[in-house]
């Protein structure tokens, strides 16, 4: 029997496989394909204080080994989540984690307070790295001061596990990671999408309504693995790794680089059942390598 349990702050996960925000809806969209109770956890769609309509169509374009998106945090707001979504998902035998976003620090705080007061959600992921919104989002995540400011405020507002999701669109991601660690973040997750752009040469126009968007998929994986490796060495809090994980082998790259848990994102669009296959693969890999506890593999390339 292999132990796959990992811990992120006070959050205990039955295995290290989570789903990435914005790629898994509220989980229920995938219940025809997998037993959601098998997941270590699932990170629900970016949630803001007020409902948001998101950006104009077109919001997506396929690119080599990946895709650009510019959804712009479309969601029905935190109250809708608490009143209508949470009752539908709270019975699932897995850990829901709410991805929290905002244009102002006060918005992040208000969302956190409502989640803390009105739900039993144990963990939040603080999105300071969305490249597709004009205000807030990545603006907080690209400076140490901005990242620290949001983290400090959220830390006070939410008693559970606070995971801060970092942007790769910075000169040195380890500086930002250290800044949020210093303000009390329990963990960091990385990477959010890489800012990119694609042009329709026949129309001589950008594909996306917003011109630029966020690149995800296996195209970004080597960048993500590198950043997870650097960050895991730079901080003492757990690192959650994501970026182009398509299968169990990819997931293990992140764990070996230093990630305590991983998030599966864009792969859900291609194979809605990939998350359970990844869990099975990790289990089988551990047996094959005579590893009795997944925690032995975290950052193993450094040893």
């Amino acid at each position: 029997m292999v132990n796959l349990n990992v811990k992120i702050g006070s959050l205990e996960l039955k295995n290290p496989v989570l789903t990435a925000s914005g790629t898994f809806g509220y989980g229920t969209e995938f219940s025809d394909f997998i037993d959601l109770g098998r997941l270590g956890g699932y990170i629900v769609k970016g949630t803001t204080l007020e409902p948001r309509q998101g950006n104009d169509y077109p919001r997506m374009v396929e690119t080599p080994s990946g895709m650009l998106n510019a959804v712009g945090l479309q969601n029905k707001g935190v109250d809708y989540f608490i009143d209508h979504i949470y009752p539908e998902i709270r019975h699932i035998d897995s850990k829901p984690i709410v991805n929290v976003s905002g244009a102002k620090v006060e918005d992040y705080v208000a969302v956190c307070e409502r989640l803390a007061d009105r739900t039993d959600i144990e963990a939040i992921e603080v999105n300071i790295s969305c490249p597709n919104v004009k205000q807030g989002g990545m603006a907080f995540g690209t400076t140490c001061a901005g990242a620290a400011q949001v983290t400090k405020a959220v830390r006070k507002a939410f008693p559970g596990t606070v995971i801060v999701k970092l942007s790769p669109n910075v000169t040195d991601i380890t500086e930002i990671a250290r800044a949020v660690e210093a303000e009390g973040a329990d963990a960091v997750s990385l990477i959010n999408t890489l800012m990119g752009m694609a042009i329709d040469v026949e129309r001589q126009r950008p594909y996306l309504s917003t011109i630029t968007g966020g690149l995800s998929g296996p195209a970004v994986r080597p960048v993500a693995v590198r950043m997870v490796w650097q960050t895991a060495k730079a901080v003492s809090i757990p690192v959650v790794g994501l970026g182009g994980i398509m299968n169990g082998r990819d997931a293990l790259e992140f764990i070996l680089a230093g990630a305590t848990a991983i998030e599966v994102g864009t792969a859900n669009f291609i194979d809605p059942a990939c998350t359970v296959k990844i869990i099975d693969y990790i289990n089988e890999y551990c047996r094959r390598h005579s590893v009795s506890d997944i925690n032995e593999l975290i950052g193993a390339i450094n040893r």
Binding site: G25, F30, Y57, P58, R59, M60, N69, P272
Partner: peptide
């Protein structure tokens, strides 16, 4: 036939403006 990624209502890429919003 808006451009889609997931087809499952998860990615929110294929939106159309309707009287109820996107």
């Amino acid at each position: 036939e808006n451009m889609m990624a997931c087809g499952l209502g998860a990615c929110l890429c294929c939106v159309e403006k309707t009287v109820k919003g996107n």
